[in-house]
Design a protein around this nucleic acid. Structure first.
Length: 259
DNA sequence: AAGAATGCCAACCGCCGCAGC
DNA sequence: TGCTGCGGCGGTTGGCATTCT
């Protein structure tokens, strides 16, 4: 008994979104919010599955998104959080207002990984690479993998909670969707406990534009005007067509509709 | 200048957890 | 209590852009 696909594959468009589709989706969400993603494409007149709509919205169209590369401080925060909790991109993203898990994941894979490797730090364990190599040689001298092969590396570690070398007996942690039970996480760490508890989703916090400036995060959320800039500059969109006035004037109301 | 190699990122896929029934 | 459907998550991929040879 297989799981029902998220959408019937027939007649569902895939691939890059066109400006026209973006327009429809934005228009629909502005006026109606997204009560149920599965229903969104149908109601918005899109030949996409709901999942695709949600992804497009959360990763690209949401007006509160920051654009551009991560700043130094954001990057540092990502590294720090990754060292503590591993590849939990959504949790990491929740600490970076205006950033998406996809964006952070991409940035990690394309920039930070290399950066850390260059610095001689293993991007998975956050330990010096030479130490890793020595450890690996001891455990399996005949099967020495290049350092880029992170498949068999251990868990990410907290700063003050170092894995013992004998954790080779536990399943190799590649941070691929394992839950917290299998992670070697120090729950006493306030940050970790915050991350493990039901942290407010990015979507929820990020809509509260007015509170953005008050956020105690080092990386503050840009103002609404800033956030809109990219959208307003989106050459294929007619601002008037979207009725962006409603974004500015009825922001609170609209945002509440999105809950 | 042209083709190859590499980088980058948007989007897809499949799985999981949870809520509702 | 088990089943089903939905949203969310993380890993992976496809294709365009950029750099290298």
């Amino acid at each position: 008994m297989g799981r029902q696909p998220c959408c019937d594959k027939l007649g569902v468009k895939k691939g890059p979104w066109t400006a026209e589709e973006d327009k429809k989706l934005i228009n629909f969400i502005i006026t109606n919010g997204h009560c149920c993603w599965r229903a969104v494409p149908k109601l918005a007149g899109l030949l996409r599955c709901g999942k695709s709509c949600r992804l497009r919205w959360t990763n690209y169209l949401r007006p509160d998104l920051k654009r551009g590369l991560l700043t130094e401080s954001e990057e540092q925060l990502v590294i720090d959080l990754h060292a503590r909790i591993g590849n939990r991109w959504s949790k990491i993203a929740a600490r970076l207002p205006g950033r998406t898990d996809n964006e952070i994941k991409n940035h990690w894979n394309t920039h930070i990984k290399k950066k850390l490797a260059k610095m001689g730090i293993d991007p998975v364990t956050h330990e010096p690479l030479h130490k890793q190599a020595v450890t690996q040689e001891i455990s399996s001298p005949t099967d020495h993998q290049p350092e880029s092969d992170n498949q068999h590396l251990q868990l990410p570690e907290t700063d003050d909670h170092v894995n013992s070398e004998d954790n080779s007996s536990s399943p190799p942690e590649n941070c691929s969707g394992d839950d917290s039970r299998s992670l070697d996480i120090n729950a006493d760490d306030p940050l970790i406990s915050w991350l493990l508890e039901d942290a407010t989703p990015l979507e929820d916090t990020s809509w509260k534009f007015s509170a953005a400036g008050d956020d105690d995060n080092s990386v503050g959320l840009p103002s609404w005007e800033e956030n809109c800039t990219w959208l307003l500059d989106y050459q294929d969109f007619g601002v008037q067509e979207f009725g962006f006035g409603c974004f500015n004037m009825d922001m609170d109301m609209d945002m509440n509709n999105f809950q």
